[in-house]
Simulated assay, not measured.
Amino acid sequence: MRLAKYLSHCGVCSRRQASRLIDAAEVRVNGHPANHIDHVTDDDHITVNGTQITGPAPKKLYLYHKPVGIDCKLRADDPSSLIHHLPPGVRVYPIGRLDKDSRGLLLLTNDGELCNRLIHPDHHQEKEYRVVVDRPFDPQFCARMSAGVPVDGVMTQACQVKPLTQDTFTIVLRQGMNRQIRKMARYCGYRVIDLYRIRIANLILDPDALPSGQYQPISFTELVLEEKKKEYRPTNILGGKSSIG
């Protein structure tokens, strides 16, 4: 099996992240610096940043209600990093990110294949957000946002935007550009003051069942990924609470 795919199967990270680790010379195979064409098995001695990889770990999936102030970059030397708030036991990492100033639903897993399916642009999974801006928007605002605006030199894809109040709307995206919603709103003359992700694919965040700063394990069958041009019905997530402090 190709090295990046093997690391993904072992729950180290996604294949894309594994490729970056290989490029950064942080992976060694049988004592030698790894390269992308390496094929490995469970019998090979593989290390990442000096830590030996012992083979595929049991696959885990969690919902996490991210509060504002948590950084999704996994940096042990950063007190605000998500790495200090992960479930114990099997190492997991976030599927995609919410920026530090945003809150809401985040998925945590050690399944690199699932991570790739959710974040790769070819798969187009929906993500829904509730957004508050700094002042009432005019009638043309939602139309401009939904039609697409230039962000970092790229025109955003058409999306669904629905007003809730004079300064609050929901937006459904299939893209994952850096700080996309904030930049879209800024282009239209508004500043986002609250960004709350409420849905990923068919999973809807229920803050009564999963309060801010807590996580809960779910089964992989509870996540239903949308096929292209196929409709599906969102489902609420209920269940127990596991505090992470």
Rank of each mutant, 00 (worst) to 15 (best):
M1Y: 04
M1C: 07
M1Q: 08
A4Q: 10
K5A: 12
G11E: 02
A18P: 02
E26G: 10
I37R: 14
V40H: 04
H45I: 01
H45E: 03
G50C: 09
Q52V: 11
Q52M: 13
P56A: 15
K59I: 09
Y62D: 09
P67A: 11
L74H: 00
R75Q: 13
R75S: 13
R75A: 15
R75W: 01
D78A: 06
D78T: 01
P79E: 08
S81T: 05
H84V: 12
L86V: 06
P87I: 04
P87T: 05
P88I: 06
V90E: 08
V90T: 12
V92A: 02
V92M: 04
Y93M: 05
D101P: 06
S102T: 05
R103P: 06
L107E: 01
L108G: 03
E113W: 02
R117V: 01
P121I: 10
Q125P: 03
Y129P: 01
R130S: 06
V133M: 10
Q140F: 01
C142R: 09
G148Y: 00
V149M: 09
T156H: 08
Q160S: 15
P163Y: 01
L164P: 02
T165R: 04
T165D: 09
T165A: 14
Q166G: 12
T168P: 05
I171G: 06
I171W: 05
V172P: 08
Q175T: 15
G176N: 05
N178F: 11
Q180T: 02
I181M: 10
I181P: 07
R182F: 04
K183V: 02
A185Q: 08
C188D: 05
G189H: 03
R191I: 10
I193C: 05
Y196F: 14
R197V: 01
I198V: 15
I200K: 00
A201C: 13
N202Y: 04
L205D: 12
D206G: 15
G213H: 06
Q214H: 14
Y215E: 13
Q216R: 15
L223Q: 08
L225S: 03
E227Y: 00
K228I: 13
K228P: 12
K229C: 13
K230N: 14
E231V: 07
R233H: 14
R233W: 02
P234G: 14
T235F: 00
T235L: 09
N236L: 11
N236R: 03
I237E: 11
L238R: 07
S243A: 14
I244D: 14
G245L: 13
G245A: 12
